[in-house]
Design a protein around this nucleic acid. Sequence first.
DNA 1: TCGCTCCATAATTTCGAAATTATAGGCAAG
DNA 2: CTTGCCTATAATTTCGAAATTATGGAGCGA
Lengths: 225, 225
Amino acid sequence: MSDAREAAATLASRIYGRLREDVIAGVLPPGSKLALDRLRSQYGIGMTPLREALYRLSATLLVEAHDQRGFRVAALNLAHFEQVLSTRERLETLMLEDSIRAGDAAWLRQVAEAHDRLQALPMYAARDGSVLNLVWRQAHQDFHYQTLSGSRHFLQDMFHQLLWDHWSRYRNLLRPPPLEEAVLKQDHARLTEAILARDAEMAVLILRRHIRHGAAAIMAVLQRE
Amino acid sequence: MSDAREAAATLASRIYGRLREDVIAGVLPPGSKLALDRLRSQYGIGMTPLREALYRLSATLLVEAHDQRGFRVAALNLAHFEQVLSTRERLETLMLEDSIRAGDAAWLRQVAEAHDRLQALPMYAARDGSVLNLVWRQAHQDFHYQTLSGSRHFLQDMFHQLLWDHWSRYRNLLRPPPLEEAVLKQDHARLTEAILARDAEMAVLILRRHIRHGAAAIMAVLQRE
DNA sequence: TCGCTCCATAATTTCGAAATTATAGGCAAG
DNA sequence: CTTGCCTATAATTTCGAAATTATGGAGCGA
């Protein structure tokens, strides 16, 4: 699927995806200038698709466009993260309530399946929790997206993905101390349980604590600077 | 100010602003194909800045980009409007509460001033209410933006503007029967009063009714089709 | 008549270079 | 020694055209 989309897309779309991943992963560091000539030769493409991709990225606020002065990767700081956090908390809460209210049986089944796939995977690739399992990370994202997709709402979906991208960048770059695998597994299990019972109030409580739990680790690193 | 920015900007930024306005005003009709060659000669620019502008617009969902098949103005329909409505209601409610909680004295003064400017203007240019006063429309937008800007929050600001743009397009194109000027004036006065008293609960109630009032007129036209 | 393939045309996408604008470093004046 | 201007350089922005891909219609066979 990913390959098919990669093959079908235009150069501008392909480079957009790669730039987005590289910004989120930290390959392109926060605050750094995006020298067009360097990127052009580095990614092996022309000026036009590169600029088109950068403008699209600038609309997600992962990079900033400055007229006549090129592009820059957005910086990281505590104030920004707090905005991502509060917005994410509020948006996901609303989306979860909507989903539980409007989601049908097929959606419930998909949530359960996404949860099963997630629980079957080990969270870390190394014993000491220093290396995150990339397959787990994808399954984790799929699970959370699934829980919020009961009522199809493309505006909120778009905004949610934007917030998730920004959040991921903080986690990838600040590398907070690894979370307890058992705790996360329990959160996910309880969240799934509440959703399947259509207990919106409980589901929201669990989700909010889940988000704050992850946020605390990131903010601890941010405040140390 | 607008002139200074216009002069300083790149061609791509200027054309972005013009395209955005033309989509919102309905000059470029919903669902229509954006023929690149026609736009290029029509706006008198080259292919590169035009495409860059269109990609930026596509990130706001006012136009859709389809790989290898060009660009299209987003369509209008009831389901979409309902999503804009519900998201706007929720987002503006939260932003208003934040503003009243965190806004300082300078912000309160700015709200009062924006309200004064708005109240001094007539809403319609024609007696029968068939032609909206464009100066009023700008002042109206300024007023509402001001009420929500007490706690600077660039993510929510960006999303709020996106929703406002989409909303404006529905109002401009569907031309619902004109609202009672006296009712709107009273809404704005009461909203301002509640904000100055830092009565968040009351302010939210007024704002929510204000939004629903405008939405009802638009949805009536949408359902008639 | 319907469906399919193939071709001509039109459209989008991409490139390479020219034009424009920012930037850093030297030079002169105070 | 500092400040401001000016120039050389580097970077961004824009253009025009080539390359690639989609589209509509004619022709053919079922």
